[in-house]
């Protein structure tokens, strides 16, 4: 019974999204970046330069047919590097969001399902974490752990999970009153089994929506950390790092900092627009309002 409603939901969702041109466009951009980053070594014009091989005699060539995005301070093709950078940024986004979900969702579900003391303790901890300014906290964390892409990702994940805990808890609280959950309780299914067998699959939709939107925040935050030297390290083609390196050449060789930044913007925009549409579609309240006007 439950499965049936879900697929009906999904059908409506897909239908509505198909009607939303912006959502389709952003989905297209996301797919494009994913494909491009998977096949990066095969499609970039200069794979070795993408990975960091310098060509000192070709420094700072403006965009041309051979180097559509120009070359950087070591003569490397900026286009190739931007495409390689897509791999890093998408990976960072997925990693941060997944780790946050893996930590946050079980905690939230457990808190929501069991209620009482467990709920109190877990939610107070969540509240404490939510009350930190997350970027500042991540900065302090990476600054002391030592700069690096991995440390940056860990620090972001640590500051991110409480949002999912809160979201999952809200889901658990509503779902646990459903008849089939009550039925399982009656026949003596253990609490944790119910949480992971029944609550988890049913709470997943809003979490995925939130995750999509967070992809963009995670990518932006990581690029920001790299920009101030706390994230990826040279010669990594990480976008934030490339903007940071290219910054001092901005006024003479604009292409070097501009294109990687544009890539960050496009990806973040696509994820945000898509998530925005998803939410519009999935949130019955806004749909109702839309229908009436």
């Amino acid at each position: 019974m439950n499965k049936l409603t879900l697929s009906k939901e999904t059908k409506i969702t897909l239908k509505l999204i198909k009607r939303d041109k912006l959502a389709m466009l952003s989905l297209l951009i996301i797919t494009f970046f994913i494909i491009v980053s998977i096949f990066a070594p095969f499609i970039v014009p200069y794979p070795s330069q993408g990975e960091g091989l310098p060509v000192p005699e070709k420094r700072f060539l403006p965009p041309s047919f051979e180097n559509p995005f120009g070359t950087d301070y070591l003569g490397r093709d900026v286009l190739s590097r931007v495409i390689f950078g897509a791999r890093i940024s998408l990976f960072v986004g997925i990693f941060v969001v997944c780790v946050a979900i893996i930590i946050g969702v079980p905690l939230g579900l457990i808190a929501g399902y069991f209620g009482g003391k467990v709920d109190d303790v877990l939610m107070r901890i969540t509240d404490v974490f939510l009350s930190f300014p997350s970027l500042l906290f991540a900065i302090a964390l990476v600054a002391t752990l030592g700069p690096g892409l991995f440390n940056a990702m860990i620090s972001l994940s640590i500051t991110w999970w409480p949002w999912y805990a809160r979201l999952a808890r809200a889901q658990a609280v509503t779902i646990k009153e459903q008849p089939y959950i009550l039925a399982s309780q009656v026949i003596g299914v253990k609490g944790l089994t119910i949480v992971f067998r029944h609550l988890l699959p049913n709470a997943l939709t809003p979490i995925i929506v939130q995750g999509t939107m967070d992809m963009s925040s995670a990518i932006l935050a990581e690029a920001g950390l790299s920009f101030i030297g706390l994230g990826a390290q040279a010669p990594s083609p990480e976008w934030g790092l490339m903007v940071s390196t290219g910054r001092i050449y901005l006024l003479n060789y604009w292409w070097f900092p501009v294109f990687p930044g544009l890539a960050i913007f496009l990806v973040a925009l696509a994820f945000n627009l898509f998530g925005d549409s998803l939410r519009d579609v999935l949130d019955p309240k806004s749909r109702k309002a839309g229908g009436q006007m």
Partner: peptide
């Protein structure tokens, strides 16, 4: 050293 443009370029050339 982080932020040192020259050291960075030197390192990358040497690597090659």
């Amino acid at each position: 050293t982080s932020g040192d443009e020259l050291e960075k370029q030197v390192a990358e050339l040497y690597k090659a």
